[in-house]
Design a protein around this nucleic acid. Structure first.
Lengths: 261, 261
DNA sequence: TAGCGGTGGTGTACGTTGTACACCATGAGT
DNA sequence: ACTCATGGTGTACAACGTACACCACCGCTA
């Protein structure tokens, strides 16, 4: 797949077989296939297995072959009866995670965006690969649309123009996905370097850092890298930054709309 | 490459030929090869060509074959005399961009981080692919280290602990890279949909949206999607959000250290 | 009950990717 | 003039997504 270069709306129209009508790359409009009793595969089973497979190893990359094997099917081509393309499958996985995010309704814009931030952060931590995928495709699945719709609905009373309204939501989600991507990278790096403890990780780069330290270069960076406190929890936690962003967004509102906390 | 699954510190040690000693995946320690007068390739030429190639098409994906062709060389393997692996080459490209970022010195922490944010944002806009690559590998090249060192040096007088110090820098760079990735995705989507104007883009998703609108679903989202104002510049610009983040970071400092503006 | 057609999994195959390996042409040093 | 490292070439392979032909089987109608 490689950053979904193959996924163009124009040409994915003709990728799937004509028995099951395709929907132009926008996979979410297929009605469920007329089920036969004996089928061992289904779109739901495939998506669920793909998500488990992505959860299992750290970068969250899946291959159609590995997925077919996990589903007990010998040919990867069997999956193409149900999903049209790997990119379409990834769209479905992504939207499934969007479905795990909720927006609190009726408690005002700040509570809505706070809840959006918190629940999406939890979803990202459950499925680290989601951060990467959500960044690289437009949020157009039914669950994503439902989510955006709920968030925009809560912003409606503020009377903001369209661009600003969506900007509020994107500010929050951008923070979530950015933090998630950084987290994913940290995990990936740990998986690359044999084992996962902090001391293992430190030992892997130690010779490189020593060489720099010996040359007397970058003293402030070396000072950080050799400080045992460097792994302490930072005050700039996800939640703290989210609050800063919400405070910033609040400054765009008339004073009477800025909720107290 | 595919999100550099192949790039493990342990095994990239043996990827390059033994004529040019490799440095364990950390490519930045090769001294320049003893030059011969007649060589048509060099590490510098390769990295420069790779950056131009990545700048040329939107997702910024390069292949060794395309790069070899651009350099007028028939075999992609010629490049492996100079770079060890594609992942190592990408490390070099990434660090080259880090070299375009500067940190103002001597004007205090806020000016330093502001300058860091501004210049890195400019670099990201020049080389959109940088946002993707910087997210997926640790910043360990000489230019990256120099940059982190300079930023940390400017934070030194604040007397913060190590984790918080680095957190200040990462907060800014996280915002830059997150915004850059969103920008890259927008450009990629435009490139997928035939041409690049806003109306083209809108026309591409219009039938899908109409179907949703006709079903009466997601009215608030549809309201945004059909609002001609939705493309207006948002108040949550990159610079504005950066200011919010700096304001937030300032709250972690004793009052006398928060600079006025 | 015989046959027929569509459904769903199989097997093979192709193009593209990164890159290992053997090969050889050339120019510098003895 | 012989040697030999240097640097570009060509071939080859594994893994990927996926197109295509194939066939086993089930439910239907005759």
């Amino acid at each position: 797949m490689v950053y979904n270069v193959h996924h163009r709306y124009s040409e994915s129209t003709m990728t799937s077989s004509e028995r099951r009508p395709d929907t132009g790359g926008l996979v979410w409009f297929d009605e469920p296939a007329p089920p036969r009793a004996t089928e061992q595969l289904s779109r739901e089973r495939i998506v669920a297995a793909a998500m488990e497979l992505a959860d299992d190893q750290v970068p969250g990359e899946i291959t159609m072959r590995a997925l077919a094997a996990r589903l007990g099917v010998r040919s990867p081509m069997a999956l193409y009866r149900y999903v049209g393309s790997k990119d379409g499958l990834v769209d479905l996985m992504t939207d499934q995670v969007y479905g795990q995010i909720t927006v609190p309704r009726g408690d005002g814009w700040r509570a809505a965006l706070q809840g959006l931030g918190r629940t999406s952060w939890e979803a990202v931590q459950r499925h680290l690969w989601f951060a990467r995928l959500a960044f690289s495709r437009p949020p157009m699945g039914p669950n994503a649309l439902h989510l955006y719709d709920a968030a925009l609905a809560e912003l409606e009373p503020l009377g903001l123009d369209a661009a600003t309204r969506m900007g509020f939501v994107k500010t929050v989600l951008g923070h979530v996905l950015g933090s998630g991507l950084a987290l994913l990278e940290e995990h990936t790096m740990r998986a690359r370097v044999g084992l996962h403890s902090d001391s293992d990780l430190h030992a892997a780069v130690a010779p490189y850092l020593e060489r720099i330290a010996a040359a007397g270069e970058h003293p402030h960076f070396i000072g950080w890298a050799t400080d045992p406190q460097r792994l302490a929890p930072e005050p700039q936690s996800f939640e703290q930054v989210l609050e800063w962003l919400l405070d910033g967004l609040a400054t765009l509102l008339p004073p009477e709309d800025r909720s107290p906390a």
